[in-house]
Simulated assay, not measured.
Amino acid sequence: MNKYSLQIALAYMSVVIGGGFASGNEVLQFFTGYGLAGIAGSVVAAVLFAFLGMQIARISSIMQAGSHKQVLYILFGEKAGFVVDVILSFFLYGVGVVMLAGAGSTLAQQFGLAPLVGSILMTVLVIATLCLNVRGIINLISAVMPFLLVMVLAITVYSIYTSTGSQAELAAVSEDIPVITFLGAEVPNWALSGLLYASFNIAVGFPMLAVIGGLTKQPKAAALGGIGGGLGLGVLIIVLNIGLFANLDRLVGVEIPTLLLAQAIHPWLAVLMSLALICMIYSTAVGMFFAFGARFATPDTSRFKVLSAIFAVIGLVLSQAGFTKLVGTVYPMLGVVGLVLIIAIAMSWIRTRNRSAEELAADPRVQQK
C-alpha cells in the first residue's frame, strides 16, 4: 500500500468514523439492540464497506473526478444523476447538522457544558477549516486518524475484558434497546440493519472518497485504499459492537456510550476520549459541509467560503433539535439514498469488472466529464 492508498484509506475511515460510530450511539441502535446476532450484522457492513470503497475510489481515479457530482453522472446518467445529487446533498447537510449536535452532546456529557456551547465551538472550527484548500482539508482529516483508532480500540477492548454482566443478562437488556427505524417501522433483523448501516455510511463517505480518489492517477492504488479503509472500518465496527454488548447493562439511555466506557476506566481517559470524539465528529462535519458547499460553489473560492459559513451557521440552529433524535431521523432516510448508490455501484462493477483502467478512461462518458 503506497502513500496514496494509505491517505485514501485514512480519510475514508475518518469521515465515516465521525458520522457512523465514534459516539457508539449509532452502533448501539443499528447492531447492539439485536444482541449477539448484531455482530453478524456488523460483518455484513464490513464486507460492503470494502467493496464499495474499492469501486468508488477506482472510478474517481480513472475519471480524475473533482467532485462527487461527476461520479454520480457516470453511475446514473446526467438527468438521474442530477436528481440523486440534489437528494444526496440535502441529506449530507443533515449529517453535518447531526455532527454539530453530537459535539454539543459530547461536551455536555463530559464537562457539563450546555449543548449549545459545544455546537458553537464545532461550527467555528468547521468554518475555519473550510477556508483552507482541498488538499489542506484532506491532510487535516487524515492526520488525526491513527491516534483516534488507537483510542477507540484500546477503550473498547479493555471494556470487553472488564465486563461483569452475564450473556443471558446482557441479551435481556438488549431487548430494551431501541433498534433503528426505517420508513416508520423498526428494522426486523440484523442482516437488513447491516445493509442499511453500510448504505447510510457509504452515502456519507461517498463525496469525500470521490474527491480523494480523483487526486491520484493510480486507479489500482486508489482501489487498494478503498479496500483498506473499508476493512479497517469493518474491524472497528465489530470490535466496538462487541464492547458495547459486553457493557450493555450500563449503557441504556446514554447518548455517548463510548465516553461512558472511557469514564469507567479513568476520568482522565474520559477527557482524552471526549477530545478524540470531538476530532472524529469534526472530520465528518468538515466533510459534510464541504460536500454541500461544493454543490453551490467551486471549492477554494471566496463564494464557497462565504456560503459554507452561512450553511454552517444555519446548521448550528437546526442542531438544537437533539443528537439522538437527529440520528434516528436523518440516518435511516439517508440510508435510502445509500441503497440506491449501492445498487448503481454494483451494476457499474458488473459492467466494468473485466475492463482495464485504460479502456474505462477511453469511455466517451468519462472523457466528457
Rank of each mutant, 00 (worst) to 15 (best):
V173N: 02
Q320P: 00
S67G: 13
G77F: 06
K69C: 00
N189E: 13
T324Y: 04
F206S: 09
M13A: 12
A361L: 08
F30H: 05
L251V: 09
L52H: 02
N247T: 10
S105N: 07
N247G: 07
S14W: 08
V337M: 12
F31A: 01
T162G: 06
L248F: 00
A101L: 11
L316H: 02
G33R: 09
A203D: 05
P146R: 09
G253Y: 08
P257T: 04
F21W: 13
T301D: 07
G136K: 02
T329P: 00
T162H: 15
V173R: 10
L307N: 03
G232D: 10
G38K: 10
I314G: 02
L125N: 02
Q110S: 12
V152D: 00
N2F: 03
I56L: 11
G287D: 08
A101V: 07
A362M: 11
A65V: 01
I278N: 04
I212M: 15
L28S: 10
M145I: 14
S89K: 02
D85K: 07
A108L: 01
F76Q: 03
S105G: 01
L277N: 04
Q7A: 09
A361W: 04
A362T: 06
V286W: 01
L360V: 08
S89A: 15
Y158L: 14
L360S: 01
T129W: 06
Q110A: 15
V252P: 00
V252H: 08
L153V: 15
A168K: 10
Y73A: 13
S23E: 07
L195K: 03
S67T: 13
V157A: 13
G77E: 04
P257F: 01
R365A: 14
S308H: 06
G230F: 02
N247I: 05
M13P: 01
F245V: 06
R365G: 09
V126E: 02
V366M: 14
D363H: 12
L275M: 13
L233S: 04
Y161E: 06
Q55H: 07
D176W: 00
G335E: 10
W268F: 14
L209S: 07
Q367G: 03
I345C: 10
R303S: 14
A11E: 07
G165I: 13
S159M: 09
L318I: 13
S308T: 15
L72D: 00
I212T: 14
N25L: 05
V313Q: 04
A9M: 08
L261C: 08
S60T: 05
T106V: 14
F289D: 03
G214Q: 09
F290E: 04
L251I: 08
L153Y: 09
D85A: 14
G136A: 03
A221V: 01
G77L: 12
V211M: 12
A172S: 12
L244I: 14
F111Y: 15
V44K: 06
P207R: 08
N133S: 11
S61N: 06
G253C: 11
A276H: 05
G315F: 07
Q367F: 02
G232C: 12
M288R: 01
I227W: 05
V235R: 04
I256K: 09
V150E: 00
